[in-house]
Amino acid sequence: MIVALAFYVFAAILLLSACMVITARNPVHSVLFLILAFINAAALFVLAGAEFLAMVLVIVYVGAVAVLFLFVVMMLDVDFAALREGFQRYAPLGLLIGFILMVEIGAVAVGWTVTPAAHLASQVPMPADMSNTAALGDLIYTRYMFAFELVALLLLVAMIGAIVLTHSGERRSRRQDISAQHQRPIDETLTMVKLGIGKGARQMTQSAPASQETIR
């Protein structure tokens, strides 16, 4: 009973927050509703017994992707008046595209037939003696190793692409080079000066370099 109740609560919040993502006026609120939707989806995963997927959803999407998303959206200086300017003009086109997409999805969904034996052939049965985390690991690192490494490679390429796009080559900012600082000898940085009466350090070093002592 509690499980069913929990399911309906999470599912309702999930759908509601998904609607709010596209209807909220403020983009920051949209992102926050998206995060709420992610968390509820994770809760549904837990109810379905897929606790590993639930945690990974929270860690990857909520903990990392959405943070950067929120970060970018907050820093954007969006002019909402300018955004709504062409709304009347482009609304028919948008509605047309939306309608076509809906019809297509409907056509696919209606024409979809699944042979009853399909799930037996495609799925790997859940081993009884393992938690689903171990079972997933067992599968990903053996049967789907190639696909897994391909995905990793794809992410690596995307990362390198992002670095290349933003790296300008020349060093414009002043950075600290710690090893260079450590390798600097003392006599480059420090001079000991014996001050005469009534004279400043600068006068002493200029007029009488002989009295200047360097420390080693």
Binding site: I35, I59, G63, A64, V67, M74
Partner: peptide, 25 residues
Amino acid sequence: NINVGLLYLFAISSLGVYGVIIAGW
């Protein structure tokens, strides 16, 4: 005492940043 306790801790600690970001914004 859940099976993915470690991931749960990691997930919760990765959410901690939201309190700060939302407060700042």
